[in-house]
């Protein structure tokens, strides 16, 4: 028999890997869950850049794709 339970998380793709995040999470929430400083990360949501001030306004949906990038050493 299957157990019916309320799942309050959804699966999205972050930096190429599937991860569960809270349902109805905003992009700002996702960064918080991942313990990332929004001032040091740039967010691309379904191939569109979301500017920092808009991060609390955009919610993720199942199977959304996020790219979280930052500056690393390079030449």
């Amino acid at each position: 028999m299957t157990v019916q339970r309320v799942d309050d998380t959804i699966e999205i793709i972050i930096n190429g890997a599937r991860r569960r995040v809270p349902r109805d999470a905003t992009l700002r929430d996702v960064l918080s869950v991942l313990d990332l400083d929004p001032r040091l990360v740039v967010v691309e949501h379904n191939r569109r850049i979301v500017r920092r001030p808009a991060l609390p306004d955009v919610r993720v949906a199942p199977d959304d794709t996020l790219e979280l990038v930052h500056f690393v050493g390079g030449g």
């Binding site: 972050i14 190429g16 991942l34 990360v41 990038v69 930052h70 500056f71 690393v72 390079g74 030449g75």
Partner: peptide, 18 residues
Amino acid sequence: TVAVRRVDLDRTKAEGIL
């Protein structure tokens, strides 16, 4: 100069250059 790369969510590698 700096490069743009994915954040390493598992933190096994170095942190961002900033």
